[in-house]
Nucleic acid binder design. Sequence first.
DNA 1: GAGCTGACGATCA
DNA 2: CTGATCGCCAGCT
Length: 103
Amino acid sequence: MEPFTARVIEAIKHIPPGTVMTYGQIARIAGSPRAARQVARVLHSMSRNYQLPWHRVVNKDGKIMLSDPDQANMQQYLLESEGILFLQKGIVELAKYQYQTVT
DNA sequence: GAGCTGACGATCA
DNA sequence: CTGATCGCCAGCT
């Protein structure tokens, strides 16, 4: 497995309940600030093979950007279950819930 | 093995 | 401010 992938997985694993992280933020932690897309790709691939809180990952707008409506709905449901309030359909209050990386 | 795709993000027009 | 384009590079065909 690529180091990048391992870092992505680890970063996601460290996201506490009730908080979220952005793809770009994870990308930075993983070592590639502009590799947000790869984070998403890794996520989509790993989430079905590893037990990851992939639902705690949203884009920089705090918005769920999943292609599958069913999964997007699932993500919102899971986040709400953790106490996260949605401003709109598929949009969380990122400024309030974004996880502060410790590095 | 080579090329295409894409759960994003930043910049340009 | 809104819309379109480029870059990024791991994963899939």
